[in-house]
């Protein structure tokens, strides 16, 4: 069973057990436009909730990707190095950025659920 939550910085995080998969939302991918480069965190790196964890660059500009929750990075989606366009094609699936081992469950439950995020983006 998995549950997905969202940040006001347009990251999504999907929790399965204590494994959290992170990416950017469809809304963010559409705003960015064609993604041409992704910089991913190294395995073993400790990230804090709200801390810079990755970088995504479109033809237009570079943007930071923040960790929605804190923890230790367990893997990164290396496929994005050669095929950054996956972020546009399937932002909330094959275009995931990295996985981390969740440290504090409270950080997850504090985030928006799908309905709250949809409401949030409507106002932007």
């Amino acid at each position: 069973m998995s549950e997905t939550r969202y940040t006001d910085q347009h990251e999504w995080v999907r929790l399965e057990g204590d494994s959290a998969t992170v990416g950017i939302t469809k809304f963010a991918a559409e705003q960015l436009g064609d993604v041409v480069y992704v910089e991913l965190p190294a395995k073993g790196k400790a990230v804090k909730a709200g801390g810079e964890a990755a970088v995504v660059e479109s033809v237009k500009a570079a943007s930071e990707v923040y960790a929605p929750v804190g923890g230790e990075v367990t893997s990164a989606n290396e496929a994005l190095s050669t095929e950054p366009s996956k972020v546009n094609e399937d932002p909330e699936g094959a275009g995931w950025f990295f996985k981390l081992k969740l440290a504090d469950a409270g950080e997850f439950t504090n985030l928006m659920d799908a309905a709250a995020y949809a409401e949030f983006t409507k106002g932007l």
Partner: peptide, 12 residues
């Protein structure tokens, strides 16, 4: 217009 629906990459 900075881009149209096709996007910068395809337009280029």
């Amino acid at each position: 217009p900075v881009q149209y629906p096709a996007g910068i990459l395809k337009e280029h």
